[in-house]
Design a protein around this nucleic acid. Structure first.
Lengths: 239, 239
DNA sequence: CTACCGGTGTGGTCGGACCACAGGGTAGGG
DNA sequence: CCCTACCCTGTGGTCCGACCACACCGGTAG
């Protein structure tokens, strides 16, 4: 048993038992070291891991914002894990895209079947309005695009799936952007994407689950085919 | 910019550029510290993070197995992130189960639509045979059960989804086990689960995607309802 | 009453030291 | 000549003590 794991187990146990809550603070590194009978460097290694896992946020200084504060940020660790494993080339980009397709089509179906608050849709709509600006560069456009898709999957109400979607989009971002030059006419593509987005949102708002899901599937598939990316054989959503 | 991040970026860049491959080794901690102009403790913090992310495996001693070896182990970090965030109670168990349902039904549909090698199915079948042993405790049974479901999702051929499934199962394990006492007759339930497993595998082998998917959905839903667990309203798979 | 300014506690970093471990080269015995 | 036992070397694992930068907070001077 390595020493830093003592800290990890201690923190996990404290979380599970409710002794630590979001917004709470870990004891100081020196205190923790003394309590567990280990050295400060060992404690620091554990805190770094917790930070990388999105469980704490550290800050120097004093006051309520300083120290190791408990947070709940699952997106950044998921993104980091994805990025690193994509870098090893042992995680095919095709699998990532396929997973995205699955999660998004499900989210759209689910969201269309729920009672949505008006302000939930407002955020997504605002993004679409901003995407109407024809002066946007492909990169700016795609950032808004990604944000829209993430917002859409958030409407399904499953925080895990929303978090995974966010990570997937981050991981895919560079990949998609690199393929923009493959498109024969970017502006024409953008026009098509805008229309499809509106259509998807309308289907979600109108409570048409199957239509929303198939629109999303077609929307994503269409773009990847146009950009000559990731030939993926899987279904993703409902056929 | 914190010092340990220098190491993370360096390693990620080396991975992306192909200077580091699976099976390769990181420079020694002392060497790395000198190269980046930082101290060894800073390097160690970064290595710990990489280890927690499943990118390296560290070992003492000498020889080809010692040092920080590059590996590709996405499952353990995903599991750890899930466990920690479940402990914070900011990740509802219902969402985890719902996600599992989605991934598994998709995997079953996908697997049934593929050409499978005989030995791919062998592993799953072997697990089912072992589960026929009536002397198994609920915990032993459930471990095999989880392994079977993971193997099943592996048949779809998407390593990301398979990895996520493995993590979800680990996260759910304790939760499910704690609910076994809720079951009026464990042995009767086990008999039903065995039959359903065989049926699912048959549908996958027989190339019946929709049947496989709906069997899986019913299989999972049935168990959760019997154990009076996680009332989840979502669809998960195709309705 | 206000503005300044040090005290105090936080994480961030560093250098050095020692330990346990495992492999490989070497010196010794057969 | 071969085999065995030993020691040397390099690895990560751990620890100590120190100093820095930072941010709040309280006392103090105006």
């Amino acid at each position: 048993m390595k020493n830093y794991e003592l800290v990890l187990h201690r923190v996990e146990a404290d979380l599970a038992a409710g002794r630590l809550r979001i917004g709470g603070r870990l004891p100081g590194e020196r205190t923790l070291a003394e309590q567990l009978g280990i050295s400060r460097p060992s404690v620091r290694e554990a805190v770094r891991v917790l930070e990388a896992m999105g469980v704490v946020r550290t800050a120097t200084g004093s006051g309520p914002e300083a120290g190791a504060v408990i947070v709940a940020e699952p997106v950044s660790p998921l993104t980091a894990v994805l990025r690193l494993h994509l870098a090893t080339n042992h995680l095919p980009m095709g699998d990532v895209v396929q997973t995205r397709l699955l999660l998004e089509s499900w989210s759209a179906r689910e969201a269309a079947g729920r009672e949505l608050e008006a302000d939930e849709l407002k955020a997504a709509e605002g993004l679409l309005d901003r995407m109407d600006d024809t002066g946007l560069s492909p990169e700016e456009f795609h950032l808004l695009d990604a944000e829209f898709h993430v917002a859409l999957s958030g409407l399904a109400g499953n925080v895990l799936i929303a978090a995974v979607m966010t990570s997937l989009r981050s991981a895919i971002h560079g990949y998609v952007l690199a393929a923009v030059p493959n498109l024969p006419d970017w502006e024409a593509v953008a026009v098509g994407l805008r229309a499809e987005h509106r259509e998807i949102l309308a289907a979600v708002r109108g409570g048409e689950p199957e239509r929303a899901a198939s629109l999303v599937t077609a929307h994503i598939r269409g773009f990847y085919q146009a950009a000559q990316l990731a030939p993926f054989g899987g279904e993703g959503g409902t056929a």
